[in-house]
Simulated scan of single mutants.
Amino acid sequence: MTRNRLSSPRRAALSSGLATLLMAAVCAGTTGLQAGSAAAAPGNGGAAGVAAPDALQPARDTEPAATGHVTTIDQSTHQLRATVDGKTVAVFPAGFGMARFPTRSGTYHVLGKDPMVEMTSCSARITCDSGSPDYYDLQVPDAVRLTSGGLFVHAAPWDHSVGSVDTSHGCIHLNPADAKWFYDFSQVGDTVIVEGTGRGGGPVGP
């Protein structure tokens, strides 16, 4: 009887300790998953494998940055406005996709920069027929990449209606001097907000 009376507290203590261990394991697993996701995300400010201070906060990739380089490109005004810490540092005319190839609105981040990129209608899956009016094979300077699918902000020396008539196949056109400035200004991870265009799909080209 004495042994039975002593075993009850022991079982209670064992159950309590097991519950504590299980709860700790669950919390550690949740924190690890969230922190790992945040550390792997680009632009979170943390080193690889190390959670940033706000690692457990919701992802904010689609929200405009409040500081640093933020560029807004608005089809309704046909302007590119570059800011640093909220202060405007440059305003340029900009061209957008023609009606059949609309530029996509959204919040993007600069993925990379190329001093010269070959852009072809065939690689953009528009047409490979050299006789088509939509065919092109161009060497495009000062190209700032916004998506892996081929959306760029780039110089368009052949486009003499930048800021007034939209002639591109989805990319954003700048005059050569303005494109060079924007190319030098842009850094990987910068926020670029494209607005006023609708959200058309389809191929993207120069």
Rank of each mutant, 00 (worst) to 15 (best):
G106W: 08
E118Q: 12
T67F: 07
G95Y: 13
S76P: 02
S130V: 15
S105N: 07
T120R: 10
S121E: 13
K113M: 13
G95L: 08
G97T: 08
G112N: 15
I126M: 03
S121T: 15
Q79G: 02
P64M: 03
Y108I: 01
E118T: 14
A90E: 04
T107W: 06
Y108L: 03
M116C: 09
H69V: 13
A90Q: 06
P64N: 03
G95W: 12
V117F: 10
F101A: 06
D129I: 07
A99T: 10
K113F: 11
P93W: 10
R81F: 00
A124S: 10
S130E: 15
T103I: 06
V89C: 02
D114C: 09
T88M: 00
S130G: 15
D85A: 00
C122E: 14
S130Q: 15
S130I: 15
P115D: 12
I126H: 04
T127L: 06
M98I: 04
S123C: 09
D114Y: 10
H69N: 15
D61N: 04
D74I: 14
C128E: 09
R100N: 07
L111R: 11
F92Y: 10
T107C: 03
V91Q: 09
G95D: 08
P115N: 13
A65E: 04
V110R: 00
G112M: 12
T107Y: 01
G86Y: 02
T103E: 07
D114F: 11
V110L: 13
H78T: 07
I73K: 00
T71G: 14
A94H: 07
M119V: 14
D61T: 05
D114Q: 13
D114P: 00
D114E: 12
T127E: 08
A66F: 04
S105R: 08
Y108S: 06
D61F: 05
V117W: 10
H109D: 12
T107P: 03
F101R: 09
V110D: 09
P64G: 02
Q79F: 00
T77A: 08
D61V: 03
A94K: 01
D85E: 01
F92N: 00
